[in-house]
Amino acid sequence: MSYEPPTPPANLPTEIVNTLNELSPEQLQGIATYAEALAEHKEREARLEESADQKEMEERPEDLPDDVPVKATITIKEINDNRYYYWQWRDGDKICSQYKGPVSSDE
């Protein structure tokens, strides 16, 4: 073990390095344990989010536009005796719709 103090990572902010240099060995051990657990937690959250995004992309219907969420359903609206398909979904307290296309006469 070297008698020289360790060199902090270059990407660590100076304020954090200065604060760490003022702490006791016990406090530093606590911070090390917490930092390792926090890093594992954030990595796990990132993997879960990536997995959810991947699953959403796999379940996304091919004809669903990019700006329409996967939870949207298809609704038929009648306007002036003509029937149209719309994507429809809830966004908070409001209901959003986006035109999909006309309902063909054989449907």
Rank of each mutant, 00 (worst) to 15 (best):
G92P: 13
E43V: 04
T14P: 04
R90F: 08
C96K: 15
E45R: 09
E40V: 08
Q29H: 07
E26M: 10
P25W: 02
G92W: 13
R90T: 15
E78M: 02
I76C: 03
I95V: 15
Y84G: 10
E59L: 15
T73H: 05
D106N: 05
E107I: 02
W87I: 14
Y86I: 11
K100S: 05
T14K: 11
E40N: 11
W89K: 08
A39K: 09
L28Y: 01
I16R: 00
P61D: 10
I31G: 00
E4H: 07
P9C: 00
G30K: 06
P8N: 00
R47N: 02
Y34L: 09
P61H: 09
W87K: 12
I31F: 07
S24F: 05
A32I: 06
A35Y: 02
D53A: 15
E107S: 08
E78W: 00
K71W: 06
T75P: 00
S2T: 12
Q54H: 13
V103Y: 00
T73M: 04
P102D: 02
I95F: 12
I74M: 06
D91K: 14
I76S: 02
K100A: 11
R47V: 06
E59Y: 09
M1D: 05
N18R: 08
I76F: 03
I95G: 02
I79H: 10
D106K: 06
Q27K: 12
A72E: 01
M57W: 05
A37M: 10
E49D: 15
G30I: 06
T14D: 12
E62W: 04
K77I: 01
D63A: 03
L48T: 07
W87C: 14
K77G: 02
W89L: 07
W89A: 08
T19Y: 12
P9Y: 01
D63H: 09
E49R: 15
T19E: 13
A72C: 03
E45F: 06
V17Q: 08
L23N: 03
E36Y: 04
N18D: 13
E43G: 05
R83F: 12
Q98C: 14
S24H: 01
E58I: 08
L20E: 01
W89D: 11
K55V: 11
R90N: 13
E78G: 01
Q29G: 04
E22M: 14
P8E: 00
N18A: 12
T73V: 10
E26I: 09
M1E: 04
E45L: 15
A35V: 03
Y99N: 09
N11C: 09
E26R: 12
P5N: 07
N82I: 05
E22F: 07
Q88E: 15
E36T: 03
E62A: 14
K55R: 14
Y3W: 08
A46K: 13
I16S: 01
